[in-house]
Design a protein around this nucleic acid. Structure first.
Lengths: 339, 339
DNA sequence: CTGTTAGCGCTTTCAC
DNA sequence: GTGAAAGCGCTAACAG
């Protein structure tokens, strides 16, 4: 039923090999022959079968992407960066949601390898020994995006999460705050959760400020948890005067909790978020946030993966992208800062 | 290098056919034989090659998904619904961003067909003759998600956009408003743009209200455009007292524009959005919005596609999911409404 | 520059 | 229940 390379060959009066050459842009074809083939292709409406090609060439020009949740504001931005660069290099992506469940992640790795992807892009919170094991069984390269494994066994693209959290906290300290609260991510998330908390603690410590457990709440990255944590903070007799949230959604929750309590941001409570998702511009006051360049992380990770897939030389297997703080109205300008 | 079905056959002392049967769960295998094969698979670490399988069986258990932009709050939610159901039916998805550019859409359709996807899920604003043409050249089924073609040539899953916009406008009319503004989507988007505008116009007309062109702004679905449009509305001598925006992002922009102008929502301006994305809960006041069940649309579309792919009987090729208005604080409760 | 010839790893009749 | 054998549609040596 469908027209094959063989049909085209017959129609053009050449061999399959020649058709294959034309289709693949091999220069070793006489212009006239090429023209004949092209016209036969046109006439027959030939469409190369990528599956057959994949079997014969052992390349599928497809990469597997494991993502916790595409509908997340954070990850969908990453996914876009990944796909754009993939397209640029003629790859397609098979996208799979893992919900960060270990079992599902492992199963997805396996499925993707069965599908003979040329490479794997992995996003997720924690990289366990199981992941390393599963990935090692693959003959294809893997790159981690927005995360990394503890020993840097795998190539990865991230920012310096510790430093980013440190900087954010430091910023609040510099504004004269003594009681700075933090809404962390889940503590079983090494980078998004634990390390940012460590950065916060270190910054306090370096500034000689005490760590008050009452000012630390463990959130789950969702708006609601930021809202609740902050509402709770505000019931304390010694309330915090600033909050650092491990992501923007929770930070926005913090702003709203403050407003719901009749406080003004940043006058009564300064708030700083993390990631700088598009949402930060869609709140009043607009949210100051640590910029994690999601799109770029995805793009760089994919670019890195193409290098591995092409056996190109790679000097930096572990890439750290720069971060910075984008100042908006949820924090006071430095000049006018006071406690 | 990689272990093939042939290796397993030899190791287990059976034929490839038998291994194939075991792998595919064919019941016609003696339990003992099955056990031998399974153990050989285990021992060798055999992983079936889905590409070879795809070539031989002409099924890839992969569907192509064309999406305008995964990083969009609206579409990423749809994508999640699609992927979840795909997973449920053992399909993987190749996800491609089209940015709604016709040329890219057509090219993606072609690429996906080359990759021998078993089906196609298409999201986009306008379905042109070109699309129909390209899709027709495929021997695989296509389902449209959150859109449909003018003649319902293709199966689709949507809500009744006209009625949804009508209902939203009607709601504001019922609150006693005489000057109701609308921020539309792009007019070249038949459903998200044009039809919602038609619904708005009809509602006004049915209520005997005049259509004031000064109260209609054409936005682009982004926050900024809602912000600007509303700021503009508020400079009018006869300001609107209510706004209906064609999506939530613009509606949130409307809220902020009002607040920036020192007005209170909903007291001075009622705002109603469209889609009910997750963001509506993350603004103050929280946004009243027309619920378009994105996740469900994706899920139902994918489910429908599985039916076509399995040649199952389908009675409803064009499915309309119900919509409703979710009332929040950006509109006044009906009881206390006044002009 | 072009054609011949093996496969790629699996499914699928068709026999037995 | 099981095996033999013929492809699926293409690429990739290898010859010429």
């Amino acid at each position: 039923m469908p027209v094959t390379i063989y049909d085209v060959a017959r129609e053009a009066g050449v061999s399959m090999a020649t058709v294959s050459r034309v289709v693949n842009g091999n220069p070793n074809v006489k212009p006239l022959t090429r023209k004949k083939v092209l016209s036969a292709i046109e006439r027959l409406g030939y469409r190369p079968n990528a599956v057959a090609r994949g079997l014969a060439s052992k390349k599928t020009t497809t990469v597997g992407v494991i993502i916790p949740d595409v509908s997340s504001l954070f990850f969908s931005e990453l996914a876009r960066g990944i796909e754009d660069i993939a397209t640029m290099y003629k790859y397609n992506i098979i996208l799979c949601n893992s919900d960060q469940r270990l079992e599902k992640e492992l199963q997805l790795i396996n499925t993707l390898l069965e599908k003979q992807v040329d490479g794997l892009l992995f996003m997720g919170a924690e990289i366990k020994e199981d992941h390393l094991q599963a990935l090692k069984s693959a003959s294809v390269p893997t790159v981690l995006a927005a995360t990394r494994d503890a020993d840097n066994t795998l190539p990865s693209v991230t920012i310096d999460h510790f430093q980013a959290a440190y900087d954010a906290t430091r910023e609040l300290i510099d504004h004269g705050h003594k009681r700075i609260a933090m809404i962390t991510g889940p503590m079983n998330d090494p980078l998004g959760g634990l390390i940012r908390y460590e950065g916060y603690k270190r910054a306090l410590q370096d500034a000689g400020l005490p760590l008050d457990e009452a000012l630390v709440a463990h959130g789950n990255f969702f708006y609601e948890s930021g809202l609740k944590a902050t509402a709770q903070f505000l019931t304390l007799t010694e309330r915090p005067t600033a909050v650092f949230a491990a992501n923007d959604e929770m930070a926005i929750g913090a702003i709203h909790a403050a407003q719901d309590a009749g406080l003004q941001v940043p006058r009564d409570l300064e708030v700083i978020g993390h990631d700088n998702i598009r949402l930060v511009e869609m709140v009043r006051p607009r949210l100051t946030s640590v910029v994690q360049p999601m799109y770029d992380i995805g793009a760089v990770a994919m670019r890195l993966l193409t290098k591995y897939m092409n056996n190109e030389q790679v000097d930096e297997h572990v890439v750290l992208l720069p971060h910075r703080i984008e100042h908006r109205e949820s924090t006071r300008p430095r000049e006018t800062a006071d406690s």
